[in-house]
Computed example of a mutant assay.
Amino acid sequence: MATLNPGARVLVLDDDGEDAEAAAGALLDADFAAVPLSENADGLDVDAFLAHVCRGFDALVCDHVLSGARRFGFTGAELVSRANQRPGRPLPAVLLTSHRGTDQTGSISRWLSGIPAVVDKPDLTDGIVPALDYTVRELRGDFSEERRCFLTPIEVLEVFTTNEVKRARVVVVGWHMQKSVWMPLEPALAATGLKAGELEGRWLEAKVNCNAKRPDDLYYRDITIAPDLPEDWFTS
């Protein structure tokens, strides 16, 4: 059973009409009031959108790629992340996407720290209510094993800044010491104050959900430059 009260107002934002209807139907079947976006969002940044358009709603369901007639200055991933992490009164928000495993994955991973649940479009009808349920629980501090994070060293192997989504190839020690993964670059730069080229070969520390099954599900919080490691660290 979902942890939102019956009748809760859920804003549905999806430029694909069929997907919007499927999401609304699943929410209606769970006794929620599904409300499609009706206001003009042109020119609003993400904070203004949350303050103006989302007021009066109890939750949000949003597609990642926002296109169509309305012009958005943000992705669905940023909106969902900021909604869940809004100071004072978080707005439980679930991300919908048909872009897992594509180049769009990188634009989602930057915001995963604030996205408790991502629903793949093929699983929309059955997945949306459980995802909303879990999101509410995580916002109350009840993290699943795969979303619980702890401090771990991170070795930065390479930095790539030429693509639209800037990223770094890293080894997250707490996840797997022999496998490299892609880490979003911009949060690391903002947290450390370093330039992209200065990160290569450096060690960082961050809180990471190291029990995640897939590298695309890893998120990073509280990123810092790691203290120097003891010379015998790998052999002790």
Rank of each mutant, 00 (worst) to 15 (best):
R214L: 10
L157G: 09
E164T: 12
T75L: 05
R70A: 11
E205I: 01
K195G: 12
E231Y: 01
G76D: 00
G127T: 02
V159S: 04
R202Y: 12
L37H: 04
V165H: 14
P153W: 05
D29M: 03
V53A: 05
H64E: 13
F57N: 07
A51I: 07
F74M: 02
W175F: 07
F32T: 11
H52C: 10
I223F: 15
T152G: 05
L124N: 01
E231C: 04
R110F: 10
G56I: 06
V61W: 07
F234M: 14
D142T: 08
H99Y: 15
F150K: 09
A59M: 10
P184C: 13
F49V: 03
T125A: 04
P92D: 12
G73A: 14
L132A: 01
A20M: 00
R71N: 10
L4G: 05
G201M: 01
L199N: 01
L139F: 08
D217N: 15
D216N: 14
G193V: 11
W182E: 14
V129Q: 02
N84G: 03
P122V: 08
R221W: 06
L79V: 08
R147D: 07
L13Y: 05
P6Y: 03
Q104N: 07
F160E: 15
E186T: 14
R147W: 11
R55Y: 11
V156N: 05
L189A: 06
L199D: 00
A33L: 10
T125C: 02
S107W: 09
L66C: 06
E164G: 08
R55A: 14
Y134E: 13
G88T: 12
S144G: 15
I154W: 03
T224G: 05
I108M: 14
K195E: 15
T105C: 10
G114M: 01
A20I: 00
L37S: 03
Y220P: 04
